[in-house]
């Protein structure tokens, strides 16, 4: 006890350091696991995440749930050939009544050949009136781009398009 009291300052510092480390790992773990819904507020640090193949991404996000072909319901607008992979515009529109009873809950944009295939995940609400979102993507090279829509009843729909990229836009 005497020893502890004598070095009070040092040990407190050590404790704080350990707490800090714990805090950091607590913040980053959910991101590595990629569990949905963990990214509320500040979504964690921009730590380097491991390279991932698209099958692994789909498994991580959807856990083997069946994904149906939704090419009749999803309109995927993007260029056939993108000269510059750093800025590739995409618009995704899903036909849906967007009422509280039936709406599109999430739209995922996944480009197969990127280092981390999931580009973005949008969580929509019925108040939007239409399930339409747009963004600018970075594509590392010629790749398939998928838009996956998760409906409020849990159905997963996918639409896919190949984009030819002349100059890659991802260092990673």
């Amino acid at each position: 006890m005497d020893l502890l009291r004598g070095r009070g300052g040092v040990s407190r510092r050590a404790v704080l350091r350990v707490l800090g480390l714990l805090g950091v790992s607590a913040a980053t773990t959910p991101m590595v696991l990629g569990a949905p819904g963990t990214a509320r507020g500040q979504g964690g640090l921009g730590v380097l995440e491991p390279e991932e193949r698209v099958d692994a991404t789909l498994q991580r996000l959807f856990g083997g749930r069946p994904i149906k072909d939704g090419s009749s319901l999803i309109r995927l607008d993007m260029p056939l050939i993108a000269e510059n992979g750093a800025v590739v515009p995409i618009t995704v529109e899903v036909q849906s009544p967007m009422t509280p009873a039936s709406y599109v809950k999430r739209i995922y944009i996944i480009s197969d050949k990127n280092r981390r295939p999931m580009n973005a995940r949008f969580s929509l609400s019925p108040e939007m009136g239409a399930a339409q979102i747009g963004a600018n993507l970075r594509l590392g090279g010629t790749t398939d781009v998928r838009a996956i829509a998760e409906l409020s009843d849990g159905t997963l729909l996918v639409a896919k398009r190949e984009v030819k990229v002349t100059v890659g836009g991802c260092g990673g």
Partner: peptide
């Protein structure tokens, strides 16, 4: 939206409302 580094510099987003 949860976004990643696979989104372009000076990100642009559009949505219906």
């Amino acid at each position: 939206a949860d976004t990643t580094q696979s989104i372009s510099e000076n990100p642009f987003f559009s949505f219906a409302f």
